[in-house]
Simulated assay, not measured.
Amino acid sequence: MTTVSTEQEQALAGAQGDGSAVQPCAVIVVIDPGHGDRLEAGNPIDPGAVSGKVYEKDIALDVSNKLKPKLEAKTDCIQAVYLTRDGDISEVRKRLAWRVAIAKEKKANIFISLHLDASDNASAKGQSVLYHPNSANSKSLAVAVSARANVVKPRSSGGPKPRDNLYVIKMAHFGPDTKAAVLVELGFISNESDRNACLTQADAIAQEIADGIADFILANKAIFSGAGSTPQNVPLPRPRPTDRDLPQNVPIPRPRPANL
């Protein structure tokens, strides 16, 4: 008969020696640098918001390129990181849908889209993180990312905001693997302070976002734990028989008398 040690039983039950839950997670993240694609033949590449010769698409890509290795370094919780684009997309693609299609292809657990705000009011400033109101996980991710924002502080009008009209954060567009999706407005390209921060402190901004994502994952391990987390090469204990499993109406043998 195969015996199972206490440690093996605890591993199979998802517990450590002290009884605390073990929730392995190997999260896949897809980063989406906003804009930078071509929506119609003959049209120029979509620059996003513009301030002089500064384009939203370029800042979003720069921060994304810096964010990717910072997330990859978090090997305690992140398995792989992908970008939806690593430069301008010259061929025509269906607006927004191709970005989500990449997330589905990569089986992304987290999708994060990077953008910049713009306003006619040059004093408007601050970072904001948007999530779909129907996704509690996305709200939690938005709160975690926003809590780390310091280079460009969150907008004074409040923290993360629900938005129900943004394609890339509507969970119904993603596959079952995706547990959270947010859109980060890194700051206002129309505000000199925000714009300069995004241009000169992109590395620090990327680190803040990476830390916020890791905070969210480590605080919510259970939602990323799949069937593949069962330890390998561990013998499975047989279930103990219940009363229903025992034969009914069978006389119990009397013990033999001992030799006197």
Rank of each mutant, 00 (worst) to 15 (best):
1 M>A: 06
15 A>L: 14
26 A>V: 03
26 A>M: 09
27 V>R: 13
30 V>F: 07
32 D>W: 10
33 P>V: 01
43 N>Y: 10
44 P>G: 07
46 D>H: 09
47 P>E: 07
49 A>N: 09
62 D>E: 03
63 V>W: 05
64 S>A: 12
72 E>M: 07
73 A>Y: 08
78 I>A: 07
87 G>W: 01
88 D>A: 10
88 D>S: 15
89 I>C: 08
93 R>H: 11
99 R>N: 08
103 A>Y: 04
107 K>A: 06
112 I>C: 13
113 S>M: 06
113 S>F: 05
115 H>Q: 12
123 S>L: 00
127 Q>D: 02
128 S>V: 00
134 N>C: 00
136 A>W: 03
137 N>K: 11
138 S>Y: 05
145 V>A: 04
145 V>T: 10
149 A>P: 02
149 A>R: 15
151 V>Y: 04
160 P>T: 03
161 K>C: 04
165 N>W: 08
167 Y>L: 11
174 F>P: 05
178 T>V: 03
179 K>P: 12
199 L>V: 07
202 A>S: 15
209 I>P: 09
209 I>V: 14
216 F>W: 14
218 L>A: 03
218 L>K: 14
220 N>C: 03
228 G>S: 13
228 G>T: 07
233 N>V: 06
239 P>C: 01
242 T>L: 04
249 N>H: 06
255 P>W: 02
